[in-house]
Structures are given as C-alpha cells and as structure tokens.
C-alpha cells in the first residue's frame, strides 16, 4: 500500500471519528427527547431519584447561591457607586445593580454554581456507573438508560434552577442595596423605591427563562459526558472535567444568544 493511500485512509478515519463526535450529542439529545413522553406515564418519573436530585441541586445549593449572589450584588453596587458618585448619580446604583442581577448575573451565577455542584456530579455518577457496568446491566434488563437515568436529573434541575435563580436575584438586589444604604448613604426607602420603579416583572421572568435554558444545557452536558466516559477511573475524572468546561461554554453562548434575542423585543 502506498503512503498516499495510507494517508487518505487515516484522513477518512479521522473525518468519520469527527462526524461521530458531532452526531453523538445529537443522538443523545434525540434519546432524551424520545424518553420525555414516559414522564406522563404512571410511575414515569422515579420520585425517589427526583427527590434526591432536587435536594442536591436545589435546597442543598441554596446557602452557597445566596452567599455568592449577595456578594456579587455588593460588588456590583461598589463598582457602580465608584463610577456614579463622580457624576452625583448614586441613586442610579439601584438601576445598575437591579438590571445586572435580574438580566445577567442572577441566572449566570446560579448556572455556574450548579455546573460545579450538579453538572460534574451527574457526569461522575454516570461515569462510575459505566465503570461498574451498571449501565450495561440496565440495557440487558431492557431498560433504556437515558430515560431511566437522565429524566429525574433533568426534571429536578428544571425545577430547582429557576427557584434558585429567584433566590439569587433577591439576594443580589439586597447585596447592592446593602452597599447603597451603608456606603453611599442612600436612604433605604429611596433605594427600594428606585428599584421597584425601574425594574419590572417581565425583566425578572426573562432572567428566569434564561435559567431554564441553562438548566437544560448543564444537565444534558453533564449526562452526555457521563455516558461518554471511558470505563476506567481516570475516564470518570476526565468526563467530569469535560462536563464542567462544556457546560460553562454552552451556558455563556446561550446567554449571549438570549441577550441578543431579548434585545429584539426591547429587553
């Protein structure tokens, strides 16, 4: 066989591998979509697992979400104050903090926290199951592993993340308010009045809609890389890392796209 033929065979194999890698996420997405109707069947959702993941992603993540959002709001408030005091426009700190938290930082910070807490956990859990051949066992028993293992996580995340975002939004606004009242000496009533004057419910709901999209991306990325894990201990670690990196990347991309989309409707 000539060298040129060997080269072409290698290129063909690489291309097929790349195509496989591109198709794999789509295949996984299709499998999840196909399993969704099972949610509406009797006992379609495994409640025990759902409850476990809801606690993991939701109530157990609440303290760290509240703390980070509060600090983020405070940091935004300080940065806004430093610039706005130059123009005697301290009161606009409420606008900046409110809009930044509701539209961007609230959903984004919660998404990043949950990527670290839940996305990596999903990938590691599924990777370990693969190492232990539990996934093969499920397939042997005629159970579709994607529907069986992914749906409880997905539903739990879809519920937990918007709720966490609401908590994060409120904590962020109060963080900014604490800075506005304590550092800038803006009266609490004035800051509060300004905040509820400039913000509206639609802005908050659009932020929560972002968090729904983020929760989908984090769960799918975590579960996908978990299923793609190789059957060794190092493979589990790699899949967890890949899940976190991919989740954050796709969350940022989705955030940018949604921001552009929202701008078309005036938000």
């Amino acid at each position: 066989m000539k060298n040129s033929e060997i080269f072409l065979i290698r290129v063909r194999r690489r291309l097929l591998d790349a195509a496989d890698k591109c198709v794999l996420p789509l295949e996984f997405l299709g499998a999840v979509a196909a399993a969704l109707p099972s949610l509406f069947r009797k006992k379609g959702l495994r409640l025990r697992e759902f409850r476990y993941y809801l606690a993991l992603c939701g109530s157990k993540s609440l303290p760290i979400v509240l703390l980070i959002s509060l600090l983020m709001g405070g940091v935004l408030g300080i940065q806004a104050a430093l610039q706005l005091t130059k123009f005697g426009a301290e009161i606009f700190t409420a606008d900046l903090v409110g809009f930044s938290v509701l539209k961007e930082f609230g959903p984004l910070m919660v998404a990043i926290i949950l990527t670290g807490r839940a996305g990596s956990a999903f990938a590691a859990e599924l990777g370990t199951m693969k190492v232990n051949e539990e996934i093969s066992a499920l397939e042997t028993m005629g159970i579709r592993p994607v529907g069986y293992l992914v749906l409880p996580k997905l539903v739990a995340m879809l519920l937990a993340m918007p709720v966490l975002t609401v908590f994060g939004d409120v904590a962020g606004i109060f963080g900014g308010m604490a800075i506005g009242v304590s550092v800038l000496d803006i009266p609490f009533a004035a800051y509060w009045s300004r905040t509820i004057d400039v913000l509206d419910g639609i802005t908050m709901l659009l932020g929560i809609l972002k968090s729904v999209v983020f929760s989908l991306l984090i769960t799918l990325a975590g579960c996908f890389y978990g299923f793609q894990s190789t059957s060794d201990a190092q493979g589990v670690g790699r899949s967890a890392t890949q899940a976190v990196v991919a989740s954050i990347f796709w969350v940022i991309v989705a955030d940018a796209l949604l921001t552009v989309l929202y701008s078309f409707i005036g938000y």
Binding site: R51, L54, A55, G58, S59, L62, L159, A160, P162, V163, L164, V166, F167, D169, V170, I196, L199, D200, G201, T203, M204, L205, I208
Partner: peptide, 19 residues
C-alpha cells in the same frame, strides 16, 4: 424540599408583585 420550592415560588410571586 417543600420549603425550598414553596419559598421560591412565594418569593417569585412577591418579586413580580413589587416589580
């Protein structure tokens, strides 16, 4: 979990009311 979800929903409603 009930506290978490119920609290979140109540907080959302309160925030939407004020905003």
């Amino acid at each position: 979990l009930g506290l978490f979800v119920g609290g979140g929903v109540l907080l959302l409603l309160a925030a939407l009311f004020f905003l």
